[in-house]
């Protein structure tokens, strides 16, 4: 879409399934080509929309409907951190990981999203914003508890902050 409508702003809004499982190849090569777009990646560690199945981002030991006894690293592999992987590619310009669970984090995340679009406007290349999120229904927790669990566990595996910053 960006190639045929270069004057338009383009962004994708993706989950851990299409970005880190089925679409891993496309994600890596889009980033590697440095397409001038913004990718927003919502990581809640589970396939929420289809009913709580294990995602590539599911944490070790974490329960889901397809890992009911917890993710077993020996048989189900390790959590995949695509954000760190694509930060190493020459084609990415700005890579960051944010969250939206407190007002302060929302402000930071807004800045990151704004920056992603500014980069696009300035033809800088690909910006990638991961937003670590919760899924209280998939995690089977009340929302407040889910936020707390996210802080304690998700942020340990997926630390917040900028991963690749543009050279000023």
């Amino acid at each position: 879409m960006k190639r045929v409508l270069p004057e338009k702003y383009m962004f994708s809004y993706q989950g851990d399934g299409d970005l880190a499982a089925i679409g891993t190849g496309e994600t890596i090569h889009t980033c590697n080509r440095g397409e001038n777009i913004a990718i927003f990646f919502i990581n809640n560690g589970i396939y929420g929309m289809t009913g709580g199945q294990m995602a590539p981002t599911t944490l070790p030991g974490m329960k889901s409907s397809t890992s009911p006894y917890g993710r077993n690293l020996d048989t189900m592999g390790h959590p995949l951190s695509l954000t760190e992987m694509i930060a190493q590619l020459h084609g990415t310009y700005y890579v960051t990981r944010q969250s939206v669970h407190t007002p302060a984090n929302i402000r930071k995340c807004k800045q990151a999203i704004k920056k992603a679009f500014e980069n696009q406007k300035l033809q800088k290349g690909l910006s990638f914003v991961e937003i670590v999120s919760n899924c209280n229904s998939g995690w089977k927790m009340p929302p407040v508890e889910a936020n707390k669990w996210m802080e304690e566990h998700m942020f340990a595996a997926y630390p917040l902050g900028d991963i690749k910053l543009p050279k000023e």
Partner: peptide, 15 residues
């Protein structure tokens, strides 16, 4: 790989 309306197959096997 999970997809509705057949995810119960892999979920049942996982369980």
């Amino acid at each position: 790989y999970p997809i509705t309306p057949q995810s119960e197959i892999i979920e049942y096997l996982a369980k």
